[in-house]
């Protein structure tokens, strides 16, 4: 049997990789390319013909003040969420690797929010913010408190809070793996050389865990930037559309207002911004990596 012919290669490839490649192309590659085409049409979602309109959708997207407001909000939300997720996750990882009793139990417990989908999580927190917190507030002040979700700033706070709660446990697992990869002998060597535990942490452990930081920050940025499920269930964009994040705005433009071309153009802008931030972050992070 000839192993070097073109037909042999194609047959081998199709036998193993045919179905996978077909499905991958059918739902990722083809829609991606078709989506770029759609941005140049003014398709309404129903009619068969998709009239070409040139760059009108991009112009509309750039002029869409609501979209840029939503982008700005997403950036603010992401910055706070990413910072708090990583601080909390790192602290929890430190605590559950410090050798205290029952650390596996705590690890498993902190991970629970990740098991549950964004929709259910959002509704749970909506109940907590709207009912439980209000009840606590009433008990403390003796009067009537309004829900945090009723004000734009409050809604933003709630979204950040719920996201930190949702992702911290997951990022904690990555930091735990990072802590475990730094061998104890290095820390001991630093201590013998006169480091305090805090100095050993800052100068030995954290630099060696750089790849964990890069990865956690990358994952949390890319997830926060396209937040949708929790946004939909927790605030639904309320009050007054002041908590609509970019992904939800894209969804609304395309599917609610039936401006598919413009929605797709905005989705591409969102993707490009997200990709630029993610790649820059990876690049900066990888540049200064050290090895023991």
């Amino acid at each position: 049997m000839k192993r070097n012919t073109f037909s042999y290669k194609v047959k081998q490839y199709l036998m193993f990789g045919g179905v996978g490649t077909f499905l991958f192309c059918a739902v990722v590659i083809v829609p991606f390319i078709y989506g770029i085409y759609l941005t140049f049409t003014s398709w309404d979602g129903v009619s068969r013909d998709k009239p070409l309109v040139g760059f009108a959708n991009y112009a509309a997207a750039f002029k869409d003040a609501d979209f840029w407001m939503a982008m700005g909000r997403t950036v603010i939300y992401s910055v706070f969420a990413v910072v708090f997720i990583n601080i909390l996750a790192f602290a929890m990882a430190y605590l559950v690797t410090s050798g205290v009793k029952g650390q596996n139990f705590f690890r498993a417990g902190f991970f629970v929010p990740n098991l549950i989908g964004g929709i259910v999580l959002g509704y749970i927190w909506k109940f907590v913010f709207n009912r439980a917190f209000v009840a606590i507030g009433n008990a403390i002040t003796g009067g009537t408190t309004t829900s945090l979700l009723a004000t734009p700033r409050g809604a933003m706070f709630c979204l950040i809070f719920a996201s930190v709660w949702q992702y911290a446990g997951y990022m904690m697992l990555i930091y735990v793996a990072g802590f475990m990869s730094v061998s104890d002998s290095l820390k001991e060597a630093a201590m013998i050389d006169g480091c305090t535990p805090a100095q050993a942490m800052r100068n030995v452990t954290i630099p060696l865990m750089r790849s964990s930081f890069v990865q956690c920050i990358f994952l949390s940025i890319t997830r926060c930037f396209v937040i949708y499920d929790v946004n939909l269930s927790l605030t639904k964009g309320e009050p007054f559309g002041e908590s609509v994040m970019a992904a939800m705005h894209v969804y609304n433009t395309a599917f609610t207002y039936k401006r598919y071309g413009q929605g797709q153009a905005e989705a591409l802008i969102l993707f490009i911004v997200c990709a630029i931030i993610g790649v820059t972050q990876e690049w900066i992070g990888k540049k200064g990596e050290v090895e023991a």
Binding site: V28, W43, G45, Y228, A254, F271
Partner: peptide
């Protein structure tokens, strides 16, 4: 392709497989 968020694919997906 792993960096492409779902939002970029959802409109064409509905357009191709629904339309």
């Amino acid at each position: 392709s792993m960096v492409i968020p779902f939002q970029v694919l959802m409109v064409p997906l509905v357009s191709v497989y629904g339309g």
